[in-house]
């Protein structure tokens, strides 16, 4: 473990437990977006905050080893593209751009509401990754300037 990287041992230990809970909460919010308050935007910001927690507590070096940053870039672009793909599938299967062509299922069931759940997941990934990456770049610029 690096000595002068990140915050103190107490913060690191707490973060090691809390990050998974925050991530789980974000995923819960995304998946229940069509049933309860929340959805892709809120869940995405929660996921970004969880990753940000690691960045603040453990420092930049550890985070770049733990997460594959270029993979996060790919994930961000891919989710935006998949949103478009769902929209174009709506033309062929539902008759209109972004039409709800999937099986709507039963009201109040978790796997229901057709494309809404799918789009919520893509939006969550997109928002979470892009917001985390912005802070990643902002924090990086600060370190370079301090040299």
């Amino acid at each position: 473990m690096q000595q002068n990287d990140g915050m103190t041992l107490i913060v690191k230990t707490v973060t090691r437990i809390s990050v998974w809970m925050i991530l789980l909460y974000g995923i819960y919010i995304i998946f229940h977006g069509h049933l309860s308050p929340g959805g892709g935007f809120a869940g995405g910001v929660i996921i970004a905050l969880a990753l940000l927690n690691v960045l603040l507590a453990f420092g930049r070096k550890f985070t770049s080893e733990w997460l594959n940053i270029s993979f996060l870039h790919d994930l961000e672009s891919a989710s935006a593209t998949l949103f478009l793909v769902i929209g174009i599938l709506g033309i062929s299967l539902g008759g209109a751009f972004l039409a709800n062509f999937m099986n709507k299922g039963e009201l109040f069931a978790l796997l229901s509401a057709g494309t809404i759940l799918t789009l919520n997941i893509f939006i969550g990934i997109k928002v979470g990754m892009s917001l985390f990456l912005v802070v990643w770049v902002l924090a990086g610029s600060k370190i370079v300037k301090g040299e």
Binding site: F41, V45, V127, S130, L131, V134, V135, L138
Partner: peptide, 10 residues
């Protein structure tokens, strides 16, 4: 609008 604001602030 709120999420766009976040991007703009960044």
């Amino acid at each position: 609008s709120i999420v766009i604001e976040l991007g703009t602030t960044a």
